[in-house]
Design a protein around this nucleic acid. Structure first.
Length: 844
DNA sequence: CTTCGCACTTAGTATGCCCATA
DNA sequence: TATGGGCATACTAAGTGCGAAG
């Protein structure tokens, strides 16, 4: 769900929207779709019921096939091997924008449809009202069918239920669901109960030593692990004090050695500072965990740093309207500069962007300006644009001293506002500045792109700190919106942003305790999943054949999430954000079924836009029951209908929570990413390799994960060029190799002739040279491949968010790779806990 | 239940900065 | 000394998920 504030606001707006008379293609979120159908049904009167029944028959038939297909292949599974995964995910984007463009096309089509539908609407009915009426109606409808179902008996149950199918697919009918539950309770519940128990027991026994303290839930549910955890932590604490300490010093030394290879004096000083810092670094991971939900006892900070106010343009920089210079009011001018700055960005060519911008701009104009400025096309921002381009050039051209000065000023601000005191320790803040005003840049096809993002004032900001701390002073002449003392949250300040009406926060840096602890905990949850994942897989495979539609959908969705590492796919408010989906929100149009493709059976072709409008394109061969189920789910649906119409993330997550404490859909991503890294490292690393070779293996493993998670980037602008450079190098090297070969041949011939020792030595020498050159060439070639393969894959995201750092640390220690070859300074700070605690035999 | 409200993680891109190289 | 390439950092949008309210 999106921000609640957004939702509410939107809800209000939507009430004014005319209802939609016909089922149309914009039904991203099933809620709204249902409303529409409801409306439709209302208008059609009883006719819809009849139609529904007819469809029912169709469903019954189709179900026959499906059941057959599924029965045939009981227990076919374990299709999820890495090879399959690795082969997946052809890059959706062959260049930086292709994926997005594809998406755009699609979305445009949709938007049009949507508009049309809206226009056709007649009545104005509130959202909730529709919903209630709909439910009532459905209840009645379902009741009728229920009676029949009962008579028909178990065997037909599913068919009947599915038969309700399309017409009330929205429908699901409450009673129907209740019936389902009751009917299947017998085995359904025992199953999950069994699994649940099994899981819990294991958890209790396993209790990995380094589990971070868990919050409320676990404490209430099971005291034993918590107790054990504490003991173990104490133990590890002692251990750290006794054995680990020397070990650590050693480690740190080697680190320095590694880095000092290319040292210069100033660098050395820096190192010293770093070292000192590292030494009095807070080792929170060796401390006891706090009580339930309480995040801190002391929090003191300076409040956010407010970005500087607008500086008016110099008089000689003019804005022109319809060819004539026009002096704008301050407010209007500021907004004009926002647009002017972006002039050479693709954004400004988009109609939505332009319209949104122009609308918002006009709102801030004086009435006089409003009268004059009526057409964006007549606005000429070029002079302003040039002014800013020049300005940034000038900044780049500054002398060293001037740059130094600027940097010092920035450092001062950082020093002053960039840190807080949390429970007696000085911690770095992540984002201590308020976001400057500007034009909203949504990603993908965002309906709000170009809207004005307003300046944040102290009056918008809520401060959070501890009661007894020095409360931050608002800038002179201003007041805070509110000061609160809530120690159950981690943020220091917050404000509501005006585009989507969502909250923005000032929070701590990833190196902080608050973030680190959470991160650690995340990986511990994923590790617990490792112990039960087999059971969960077995269960969802069994559920593919469930009599309940709901369960089947859940099982297939979970399969996707597990096998393909899809995101959960929360529902989104339509028209507020770009049209993107995750697993639960997939629509029929996002997959294609191929009974056979490229020699593989049961291939599902995915093509949709995910988070950040990044295209997910993949062809996967799935198990037969999954395939059959998908056919069933898609039957009689429009392309724009939800694929899993009886599923949403909260249903799925509730189910997962029952299977394992703390389990939610996203955990599968973390788990599969980390386990993949571990497996790949095992498979790829050759202990004989040089450090460079090992690093390559690491990157390969990392890449496998990035591909799994579909982490993409636009091809770097400099890619072509640098690739060319590399190619030139390769060619040169090839030349050298050839020459060396000739030389060798010559030397060999000479040896043939003379047979003297000198000639022999020469041959050896040439051989060596050739070998070295060949190696260099090979290395360059590898580099080129690596680069090519990497051009659209972003490794950073998985490294930072999905891969348990302890796997990496353990690998580094085991193979003697310096950690700083893999993690840069920031990353080492973020993962300090892992670096400190993981040893070489850490197993995820 | 479903919806709302909030907190927090995850994400890609723009920009800055540093170093190697010509 | 300039250049440019690439990594690091800054930035902020866009997700997930939980718990409370309706």
């Amino acid at each position: 769900m999106d921000s609640g504030v957004t939702t509410m606001r939107e809800g209000e707006e939507k009430e004014l929207d005319p209802p939609v008379p016909q089922q149309q293609g914009d039904a991203r979120d099933s809620k709204r779709k249902r409303e529409k159908k409801q409306e439709q049904r209302k208008q059609q009167g009883k006719g819809s019921l009849r139609k529904g029944r007819r469809k029912k028959d169709e469903f019954e038939e189709s179900l026959g096939d499906v059941m057959e297909g599924i029965e045939e292949e009981e227990g076919a599974d374990e299709g999820r091997n890495l090879a399959a995964r690795r082969g997946r995910a052809k890059r959706g984007r062959s260049n930086s924008t292709q994926g997005r463009d594809d998406g755009k096309e699609k979305q445009k089509g949709k938007a049009k449809k949507h508009k049309k539908v809206k226009m056709e609407g007649v009545e104005r009915v509130g959202k909730k009202k529709i919903k209630k009426e709909k439910m009532l109606e459905e209840e009645q409808e379902v009741e009728k069918t229920d009676e029949k179902e009962r008579e028909k008996g178990v065997g037909d149950e599913l068919g009947e239920r599915d038969g309700v199918g399309k017409e009330s697919e929205d429908g699901k009918g409450i009673k129907e669901e209740e019936l389902d539950e009751r009917g299947d309770e017998g085995w359904g519940d025992t199953q999950s109960a069994e699994i649940g128990q099994g899981v819990k027991e294991e958890e209790g026994e396993e209790g990995t030593g380094d589990v971070p303290g868990k919050e409320k839930k676990q404490k209430i549910k099971e005291k034993k692990p918590e107790g054990e955890m504490k003991k173990k932590r104490k133990k590890s604490k002692e251990k750290n004090e006794e054995e680990n300490a020397p070990g650590k010093t050693r480690k740190r030394k080697s680190k320095e050695e590694g880095e000092e290879k290319n040292n210069k004096k100033p660098k050395k000083e820096k190192k010293e500072e770093e070292k000192k810092e590292a030494e009095n670094k807070w080792k929170w991971w060796e401390e006891e965990k706090k009580e339930d939900g309480v995040k801190w006892t002391q929090l003191e900070h300076r409040g956010p740093y407010f970005v500087p106010l607008y500086e008016p343009l110099p008089d000689d920089v003019q804005f022109y309207y319809d060819g004539k210079a026009l002096k704008l009011s301050l407010a209007a001018e500021e907004i004009a500069t926002f647009y002017a700055k972006m002039l050479d960005h693709e954004y400004t060519t988009k109609e939505i962007f332009q319209n949104n911008f122009f609308n918002d701009w006009r709102k801030e104009m004086t009435s006089k300006e409003q009268e004059i400025i009526k057409d964006l096309d007549k606005c000429d921002f070029r002079e302003i644009h040039k002014y800013f381009v020049d300005k940034s050039e000038a900044r780049k051209a500054l002398s060293k001293e001037e740059k130094q000065k600027l940097k010092e000023e920035a450092d001062k601000i950082q020093e002053e506002y960039g840190y807080c005191i949390l429970d007696g320790h000085r911690e770095k803040i992540g984002n201590f500045k308020t976001e400057p005003p500007g034009l909203f840049r949504g990603r993908g096809d965002h309906p709000k792109m170009g809207m004005l993002k307003k300046r944040i004032m102290p009056e918008d900001v809520i401060i959070n700190c501890s009661k007894d701390s020095k409360i931050p002073e608002p800038p002179e002449g201003h007041k805070w919106k509110e000061v609160r003392f809530d120690n159950t949250v981690t943020w220091l300040a917050s404000w509501t942003e005006n585009i989507q009406n969502t909250l923005k926060y000032i929070m701590l840096n990833p190196s902080s305790k608050l973030k680190g602890e959470k991160d650690w905990q995340k990986y511990e949850v994923a590790r617990r999943l490792k112990d039960v994942v087999h059971k969960i897989r077995a269960q969802y495979q069994a559920d593919w054949k469930s009599k309940e539609m709901k369960k089947r959908q859940r099982a297939v969705a979970l399969y996707f999430i597990d096998k393909l590492a899809l995101r959960a796919g929360n529902e989104k408010e339509e028209g507020e954000t770009a049209d993107t989906v995750g697993c639960c929100s997939l629509r029929v149009e996002h997959i294609k079924l191929h009974p056979e493709l490229d020699g593989q059976e049961h291939v599902v072709e995915f093509d949709f836009l995910g988070k950040d409008s990044i295209r997910y394109y993949n062809k996967v061969s799935v198990e037969k029951p999954v395939f059959k189920n998908l056919q069933l789910f898609m039957k009689n649906k429009d392309p724009a209908d939800d694929l899993f119409d009886r599923l949403n993330t909260s249903i799925l997550n509730r189910h997962l929570q029952n299977l394992m404490d703390g389990l939610s859909a996203k955990v599968f991503r973390t788990y599969n990413a980390s386990i993949t890294l571990q497996e790949q490292l095992k498979a790829l690393t050759n202990s004989e390799d040089s450090v460079a070779g090992k690093l390559l293996s690491y990157n390969r493993a990392n890449r496998a994960v990035a591909i799994l998670c579909n982490h993409q980037r636009s091809t770097p602008k400099t890619f072509e060029k640098s690739m060319q450079n590399l190619q030139t190098k390769i060619d040169a090297k090839k030349q050298q190799v050839e020459e060396a070969q000739q030389e060798l041949k010559k030397a060999e011939d000479a040896f043939e002739d003379t047979k003297d020792a000198k000639a022999e030595a020469n041959v050896e020498k040439k051989k060596k040279l050739l070998k070295r050159l060949e190696e260099q060439l090979a290395k360059l070639n590898v580099q080129a491949t690596d680069k090519e393969e990497n051009k659209q894959i972003a490794l950073g995201t998985s490294k930072l968010n999905y891969l348990d750092p302890r796997i990496t640390i353990a690998w580094c220690k085991k193979f003697g790779v310096p950690i700083e070859k893999i993690y840069n300074k920031t990353q080492r700070e973020k993962f300090a806990w892992a670096i400190d605690m993981a040893d070489e035999d850490f197993e995820f």
